[in-house]
Structures are given as C-alpha cells and as structure tokens.
Design a binder for these strands. Structure first.
Length: 297
DNA sequence: AAGATTTGACCTCG
DNA sequence: CGAGGTCAAATCTT
C-alpha cells in the first residue's frame, strides 16, 4: 500500500511543469540571442539558467518519483499456461554458475516514466521477475546487439498511478549505434509547434575558423551527478569526464533517438551542445523523466 | 531455421 | 535467508 498521497505527487508534478516552462522560455530567449549574435556572456548565462532550471526540475521529480505510491498486493500478473509450466518444470541440468555474474552496481543508472515501453532501441528480453509489493512483474532487457559488445540493459516495470505508466530503469549506456528508427533532426525551433526547441550552439573549433564568430566558443557542459556546470573552454580534460548531458537531464537520449553525443564517441565535437534538442511538451506531460538511482534503492 | 520470449533454476547481495 | 538479477532450456513467432 502506498503511504504517500497522490496529491503530493501531483503538486510536485505541477511544480516541475512550471519550472520546465521557465526553461523553455529561457531557451527561446537564448535562441533569439544566438540568432542576433549577441555577446557570449549573456548566452552563457542563459544557457546556465536553462540547465539550472532543468536541474531543479529533476531534483523535484526525483523526490517526487520516490514517492510514487507503491502498489499493494504481492501477486504478479503472470498469466500462466499450466501445460507450459509443467513442461518447463523439467529440471534443467544443474550447472555451477557461481561467479558467472555479479549483481550490478546501481550507480550510473537512470529512470524514466513513460506511458509506453517504447524507446528507440532494439531490446531483447532476458528475464522477468515478480517484485515484492508490486502488482506487476519486472521485465529485464538487454540490447539486441549484445554480441557486438553493447552492454546496454534496462528494466521495465509497470506501475499504477493516475494512469498506466511504465518505469524504465536504464543501467548501461548503449555502445552500439543502432536504433529502431531515426527521426528527423530538429534544426530550429518550430514556429508551428513552439514546444519544439533546439539548441544550435554547436560551433566546433574547425567550424569556428570558417566563420567569423570568433566570440563563439564551444560550450562545455560537464555533468557530474547532480552538479551541472557550464564552461567556455573546450579542454580535453573536460571531454574525458563528460557524460551525455542530455541523457543526464532527460534520460531520453535526445528525444529517445540515437544519442548525438555520447561518451563513447571518439570524435566528440568538443562537448558542444551539438544537436541538443527536445520536445518540451514531452516533458511537460511528464511522460518521461529520470532520476538517479540513489533515490531508488 | 533463426531469433525472440517465457520461465524455473540458480546466483549474489544486503 | 529472502529479494531481486541473470542464465539458459523450452517454447513461440516470424
């Protein structure tokens, strides 16, 4: 039985939405500035405000998520086929599996809530487990391209809130470049859909030489856990410690697409905000959000 | 036939 | 010791 009120959940949800809307407004301002080629200091300030806004939101959602009422009742929803069970009952040869796997450390994971299990990666289910005090079993998925070395994992569990939602815990980033489908890159904010924003601040050093925007340096966004800082300098050192900021912030892999910028890419465009874009309405609907698993386990 | 899913067994960790 | 994560044989789907 969930001991926490749904009212509290909804209040926090509203609060988060307000903050996200603020972030959106600031993003629009930033876009305007970028188009007008204004002084970079202001751009940085705005960029920082955007990240701060999202960061605050995520903190809010983190505490909110931990309070999603746990569903009572322990029975899993397994619809079991008896005949099949009998067949499966056959004891398999006992193998010594000791040491064959380790229980996973829970750091470097993130969680999303979504009305669908869909993301844009190909997953293969490798297990399902009834979870204590949960109506629904938890499903375990690994990347279809495991044989290619991709160790991405996710766990999906249906939860019951005000609507049917799936909580997806991603444990390891994809190292493969495979997505199920590729959606078009959003190049700019869409005048038709103002909820669509895009950050086109990407100026690589190389590009920089080809244009006269010498004042525009690659924007570094380093993110270590909850701390997000923006810096102007694109040093190699910064690169090595970077995580995908958009993953960190949204858990969406930039709209759930193949990440434009991953820690695994050798040719990182100097940690610029290349291709950083999102649909704010997706977030405003709280269809997806994430938190670090510190709160979860 | 090959790949995906199901599910009981077995493992680790708290 | 129990909960939860993973393995892998059996089964299903394409």
């Amino acid at each position: 039985m969930g001991s926490l009120s749904l009212d509290n959940f909804h209040a926090r949800k509203r609060k988060a939405m307000v903050k996200l809307m603020k972030g959106k407004e600031i993003a629009v301002q930033l876009q305007t500035l970028l188009h007008e080629n204004s002084e970079p200091v202001t751009e940085q300030q705005l960029a920082f405000q955007i990240y701060r806004s999202f960061s605050d939101t995520l903190s809010e959602l983190s505490s909110c998520t931990t309070q999603i009422p746990a569903v009572e009742g322990g029975a899993s929803a397994s619809s079991s086929d008896d005949t099949r069970k009998k067949k499966m009952k056959k004891k398999r040869g006992v193998k010594d599996l000791r040491g064959c796997y380790k229980r996973r450390r829970t750091s470097d994971s993130w969680v999303t809530l979504s009305p669908s299990m869909e993301d844009n990666y190909a997953w293969r289910k490798y297990g399902q487990k009834s979870i204590l005090n949960s109506d629904y079993p938890r499903s375990y998925f690994r990347c279809t391209h495991k044989q290619d070395g991709c160790k991405a994992l996710k766990q999906v569990q249906r939860i019951r809130g005000d609507e049917i939602m799936y909580q997806t815990t991603y444990l390891i980033h994809h190292t493969c470049n495979e997505t199920l489908r590729t959606r078009p890159l959003i190049v700019d904010s869409d005048p038709i859909d103002p909820n669509l924003i895009s950050f086109q601040t990407s100026i690589t050093l190389e590009q920089d030489q080809h244009c006269n925007h010498s004042s525009k340096k690659p924007l570094i966004v380093s993110s270590v856990k909850h701390e997000i800082c923006v810096s102007e300098d694109a040093s190699h050192e910064a690169k090595s410690t970077l995580e995908d900021p958009w993953n960190e912030i949204t858990g969406l892999d930039t709209l759930g697409y193949k990440p434009v910028w991953t820690p695994y890419q050798d040719e990182v465009e100097s940690a610029s905000l290349d291709g950083l874009h999102m649909e704010v309405n997706q977030l405003c609907g709280i269809q997806n959000f994430h938190y670090f698993d510190d709160h979860m386990y």
